[in-house]
Design a protein around this nucleic acid. Sequence first.
DNA 1: TAGATTGTTAATCGATTAACAATC
DNA 2: TAGATTGTTAATCGATTAACAATC
Lengths: 237, 237
Amino acid sequence: MPGTTQPIPEASLRRLPVYLRYLQTIDSNVVKYVSCPDIAAHVHAEVIQVRKDLEAAGIAGRPKVGYELLKLISQLESFLGWDNTKDAFMAGAGSLGAALLGYTEFVRCGLSIVAAFDNDPAKIGTRLRGKEVLHIDQLAPLAQRMHVHMGIITVPGGAAQQVADLMVSGGILAIWNFAPIRLSLPPEIVVHNENLYCSLASLSQKVETLLRQRRAASDSAQSSTPNAEEVCTNEPA
Amino acid sequence: MPGTTQPIPEASLRRLPVYLRYLQTIDSNVVKYVSCPDIAAHVHAEVIQVRKDLEAAGIAGRPKVGYELLKLISQLESFLGWDNTKDAFMAGAGSLGAALLGYTEFVRCGLSIVAAFDNDPAKIGTRLRGKEVLHIDQLAPLAQRMHVHMGIITVPGGAAQQVADLMVSGGILAIWNFAPIRLSLPPEIVVHNENLYCSLASLSQKVETLLRQRRAASDSAQSSTPNAEEVCTNEPA
DNA sequence: TAGATTGTTAATCGATTAACAATC
DNA sequence: TAGATTGTTAATCGATTAACAATC
């Protein structure tokens, strides 16, 4: 069916910016074409995976030649939506909010955080990393008036659902949620959860396993049965 | 082979803390047993997925009865390594570092950030959220002396590899990396990358797709061919 | 006993990997 | 032409989902 494009796998999607970042380091005056083997070697990935990911992004190359560097970069940026910057409102003017405003590269990735919102009277009217901090009540009406479609939630878990509802009522279409709760939202809203507790679980479980194996190894070493097991849980990246 | 346990899928691992969080909200004086259907209903997951995840964590229940609440909680905590707290050193005393120190719940998840390290003379000797900020040169020797096995990297990308090498030299076994670069480390080191650009890519691509469909829909509406497509890219949790 | 839940095995689905043809 | 790379199809692998038996 024309117009019905296969959605790209999440895993591929998350690898594309890694490729893009490498491509952007290449001097386009010297190098005109890049190949999948070249990209793969530099980002420590498999050649086939790179090619499949580009294919999934709807990007084609030329056999034997490869991909035109500048064209590939712009195709990736376009696919990711990084070529036209979207304004975003951030709810929560705490330290996490400050940290996110410190990611100056976000604007090169199509994201411009234009203002922060909080309910702390002491913060209203101040500036956080140069951005105005407004009262949370203004979020919805301002989002509507300024046609802001992206929201970032850095408030505590207890306030996140309320804030998310405000965002939706203001016409926000996509939410980057850093609060460690599951948001209940209309299905058409795009939500990306950045739950650090889930990440920590992954990390700490692996460490725990590692430490247990170490203990087991040293125990068996003491009982003169050395059989330390090699462990490799390093992430591809 | 006895002792050779199947590693749990990453996806299952990331769901376990969600179940655990729900279980911890239950009054153990009232409820003694919980079932997969119950958990699934509360965390908006599938019953089979919950059961399979628990099975993957090596946790067994009793047919018809379910899982003993307090036992299940402690089994999950034990599996995740959240029952014995590990000390961690954090490299980078910036706003992201401050934000992470603000996650007071981390200690309940087995992670205690005991000190921060930086190379900015203005920061050395100060305190960040009550934690001492020491010179980065002290990280390796102190890690060794204090038997700290976990490291958190919140420094800029350019300094991350250097800092990671320091950590490894100090005997650190696991690294939670918030710098947007791929670290080259010995394979036995456990690394978890928290690359926000990858997350942003995922989010912005979906938003871009959504906006394009909207435009296409409104265009075709103008040309009297209304066929707006419903889109649902909401994440499970 | 009946019904609800876990345990276990099989089927499905999708992502990754492999193999080979097409191309420059 | 030969060789390297992309394009395309098939095979593999693993996670998810389904089905049904075992259990209390």
